[in-house]
Design a protein around this nucleic acid. Structure first.
Lengths: 370, 370
DNA sequence: CAGATCTCTGTAAGCGCTTACAGCGCGAAG
DNA sequence: CTTCGCGCTGTAAGCGCTTACAGAGATCTG
């Protein structure tokens, strides 16, 4: 019985009960919003809580209730490069927005977001060692091999951000990669009359990369164009990786593509940089387009034409789905969020002031000219 | 006694004990690395753990051990704008790097990082309601009024990221704002011979903003220059805020400054954009410099001259300090991390390829020319 | 008036883990 | 042979909270 203050002087529910002159069950009922409480009793309890600065111990709550109100967001370990000297190699702007969306949604449901990295951590502990801290998990692209998802999903509800949507044990929440890349290809081939395209890919075995590559290539072929795909023209989702890849491509002394479509915006930033470093103008010599519409894209010179994916909404939808499932509901197992073409200057369209007013529906091409 | 599997079929320490033929105390000792265990016993326990896929319930561990192994990272609520339509208004690239550094450090110590927002959350719960989930807190700039830090620090160890370093109840970990801004001012006034400078500030009442402003202004004055400081030339740390502020300044029909020094890189990005939109060239008509050296800075056109702060190291240092304190040590109460001038093209220096090789010590001016 | 029902509160058990202390066996020393 | 110390393990108590169920008092209905 914890009537003595804890070793570090922190008040417990027993102190509140004593001060309010009621039982600990009554304190618990007041704090958890039960209905059958007399107003005078409630006031006594809340007063005591305020005076003592009482905060429930979440471990005790989690243990007795069986619910911790914590959702784990799992990143691949390699995204958290430990060496502080490699400043950008593993920086992913996409993750920033995702965390933001997930955090807002978690807040809304009175949950908290715990950041976890996959792979081996300190002293050889696998990340499964931290399962015990969470009620549910959001797994980002490629953080866990497909065959491990099932056993994990047996313990806690899981959302995959990326994938085919065919998982039977986890929920998949993804964006309409195909629709977005198709709209992009059409814009380039139909509006700009480009025929020679190239694709700068992200990591192999990434569902998002595969989907974007396949859709872009197919759409370009269907429209009578060509799409150069080369292992050397492939990076690790980062700008610096893209600088290296485009550098390699430029050294090949082959005819330049008219446009490089990048699997994400961050690599598009690096591609533009590499072209500029080589004395090539964007979009006059080679156009560059991306995928994401990360916030900084509009401030580039030229501003980046890209496919907008609702990154924050992705994070929020993941959390919303998990909370519903934890509440005993059965939300959809496969959710596809819309993408949208955002036309700016890097494809060759006239650059107009981007005042951040871009809102749209679905994948309808919609330039910044409005 | 939890020998029946829990309601959701999750094995507990009792199942492991039964399977291994030992007591739960022995299982606990094995899993927590006690030394007085026979090898045969240890092997039996670890076998059972593997076969059952046992993961300790962290709530139970946290309750009995009094340590949750979770560190809370607290952001101001306004940084998590809930409206998905305002895409960038509250996006902070700085936070991305900070989280990254903190996460790596947390991993290293077998801790996890919990994201928290300050202010009122769902159903009127103050963020103090989530204290019970963490062992310690990292508070970012301006998330909690100064007078509230003491009571919080009575409950859990606190690190402030920003501030004067004079707090008696919390540890402050900050960067050498003054040294960095001084080096920047010297570069502009001495090397580029600029006399008319302007300062684009972040939010008022932010210690970082105040420190950077004061240091820059003082250094410029000491070197014989002038520094335009105006409430209208002030934003909210975001690029879009900076676009608006520079727009306002340009409409004033006053002589342009030779350079706009921005309190952070993100606003520098917006300032460069606004100048370009107005047909002004950077750096020929107006130079722009920043503070942070966020990864994207090197890919801008022109690449941004800025003061590098070790953002990841800031996050890592915060976590390291808290873990030490939780272990009963008494680390330094005021830690100042070095900054470093990074010269690129936006101040007027010749732009050279930035290959991400910039490493340095302290605040010694060091260009990208090396 | 008696019985049923409702309002409100307290007692006791338990959630899953940690660990102090007791107990047993064995070997070494006197 | 006896005593002591060490290695190893099990029992029992407890961490701080939640909640089922019992109990008391008040009110309503037949």
């Amino acid at each position: 019985m914890a009537l003595e203050k804890t070793a570090d002087g922190v008040p417990t529910i027993y102190h509140v009960a004593q001060r309010a002159g009621v039982s600990i069950a009554t304190v618990s009922r007041v704090l958890n919003g039960h209905e059958q409480i007399r107003p005078e009793t409630e006031e006594k309890v809340l007063s005591a809580v305020r005076e003592l600065g009482f905060v429930p111990n979440a471990s005790a709550q989690g243990l007795s209730k069986g619910l911790k109100r914590i959702i784990g967001l799992v990143f691949a370990n390699s995204w958290w490069e430990e060496d502080p000297q490699s400043v950008e190699e593993n920086s992913l702007l996409f993750a920033d927005e995702l965390i933001r969306g997930a955090q807002v949604a978690a807040d809304r449901h009175a949950y908290s977001l715990l950041l976890l990295s996959s792979g081996v951590t300190h002293r050889g502990h696998a990340f499964s060692d931290v399962f015990g801290k969470v009620d549910a998990l959001v797994l980002l692209d490629r953080v866990v091999r497909q065959e491990r998802v099932g056993p994990i999903a047996k313990r806690v509800p899981v959302v995959l951000l990326a994938g085919s949507g065919r998982s039977r044990s986890a929920t998949t929440i993804r964006v309409d990669n195909a629709g977005g890349m198709q709209a992009l290809a059409e814009h380039l081939v139909v509006v700009h009359e480009m025929r020679r395209t190239a694709f700068l890919g992200g990591l192999v075995d990434s569902p998002d990369n595969d989907a974007r590559l396949a859709a872009f290539q197919q759409a370009v072929f269907d429209l009578g164009g060509s799409c150069e795909i080369d292992e050397a023209l492939s990076a690790d989702w980062t700008s610096s990786g893209a600088v290296a890849a485009v550098g390699r491509r430029l050294r090949k002394r082959r005819r330049l593509p008219e446009v490089i479509a990048c699997a994400n915006d961050q690599m598009a930033i690096g591609a533009m940089h590499a072209l500029a470093m080589a004395g090539l103008r964007v979009p006059e010599d080679v156009a560059v387009v991306g995928f994401d519409d990360i916030p900084v894209a509009r401030y580039l010179r030229p501003p980046l034409t890209t496919v907008r994916q609702p990154i924050r909404q992705l994070g929020a939808a993941a959390v919303d789905s998990l909370v519903l499932r934890l509440q005993g509901h059965e939300p959809a197992r496969d959710v596809v969020l819309p993408t949208e073409l955002v036309v700016r200057g890097s494809c060759g369209c006239p650059a107009v002031p981007d005042l951040g007013l871009g809102n749209g529906n679905g994948s309808t091409p919609r330039g910044e000219r409005a």
